[in-house]
């Protein structure tokens, strides 16, 4: 087991961020969420994992994730783990955190909501964690996260 673990299926990086334990179906979406320039990125999906049956991993060199990227990841892969890497070692590891407020990243499902008719930022607040329920700050309607399109 230990030997198998040491041998990395996705190549190591010297410094940067690893997003681990991504549900396989969400891996491509997480990749899509990341605002990437010329960073070195390695990606694996459907890798076997102890914690979950299969998982995806994304490793990005020389990048710290921004708050808006983290918030989006929380929505599509709430199970994911974030690791900060320095000198090839994990120096910090934490679960993705569900924020209390999502600003400017979700489209309201209510066709009569003012946010669908004016050029403006949307805002949702987390009203329930499990399962996730989000309330539109404007029309006051509450939705499942799957009803809300990521912008």
């Amino acid at each position: 087991m230990t030997a198998a673990k040491k041998e990395m299926k996705v190549p190591a990086i010297q410094k940067g961020t690893v997003i681990d334990h991504i549900p396989p179906h969400a891996a491509a979406r997480v990749l899509d969420i990341l605002d990437l320039g010329d960073e070195l990125v390695t990606f694996g999906n459907n890798l076997s994992s102890r914690k979950m049956k299969k998982k995806g991993i994304i490793k990005v060199s020389d990048k710290m994730l921004r708050k808006d990227e983290l918030d989006r990841i929380a929505l599509v892969a709430p199970e994911a783990t974030l690791c900060e890497i320095k000198d090839y070692k994990v120096i910090k590891k934490r679960k993705v955190q569900m924020p209390d407020v999502f600003a400017g990243m979700l489209r309201c499902f209510n066709p009569n909501c003012i946010t669908r008719h004016q050029d403006m930022k949307t805002m949702f607040t987390l009203v329930q964690k499990d399962p996730v329920r989000l309330k539109c700050h404007y029309c006051e309607s509450t939705f499942d996260k799957d009803q809300l399109e990521l912008l």
């Binding site: 209510n110 009569n112 909501c113 003012i114 946010t115 669908r116 008719h117 004016q118 403006m120 539109c136 700050h137 404007y138 029309c139 006051e140 309607s141």
Partner: peptide
């Protein structure tokens, strides 16, 4: 008074 929900908040 406005027809869209949330207009008053905006």
């Amino acid at each position: 008074r406005h027809p869209h929900e949330g207009s008053a908040r905006l």
